[in-house]
Amino acid sequence: MTTSSLGTVTEGSIAQPDQHDNLVIEAPRNRRKRPSGNRSKTNFEMYAWIFMRMSGLLLFVLVLWHLLIMTVLDGGVQKVNFAFVAGRWSSPFWRTWDLAQLWLAQLHGTNGLRVIINDYAERDGTRFWLKMLLYMSSFLVLLLGTLVIFTFDPNLT
């Protein structure tokens, strides 16, 4: 038995303390520092995970029903035109439906792409700018879509 900075090591084992004096193995009870530092002290990732499942469940109904009406029933997409949209958006029910669909789908998709960017973009700068582009475009899509639903004018010429 010899004693070194590593503590007591049985001779003949793989570790050769005399040759590895600079090797530091932290005590098992010491928590490793989080790779992303202090930024991830909130439970953002857990809430994002829950949001994906909650919004996914709602979107299952909202989007599949939307696709059934718009692309399958009554001649499919052939019937869709300005008058058809005006007819649907005369009802607050369908406006609310479409607004919920817009926000849930856009946020669900934005978080999905955020995860994909984090997975595949390895350089810090690439990851940062791709996500900035993603958040900017999402913001614009949500703003534009919301404005269109709230300011729709069936008598526009």
């Binding site: 035109n81 300005f82 949209v85 534009l144 404005l147 269109v148 300011t151 526009l156 010429t157």
Partner: peptide
């Protein structure tokens, strides 16, 4: 969302 936004431009463009 962009194509639907054309309902705010004109019925014809939509």
């Amino acid at each position: 969302v962009l194509d639907t936004a054309l309902v705010r431009v004109s019925p014809d463009s939509y």
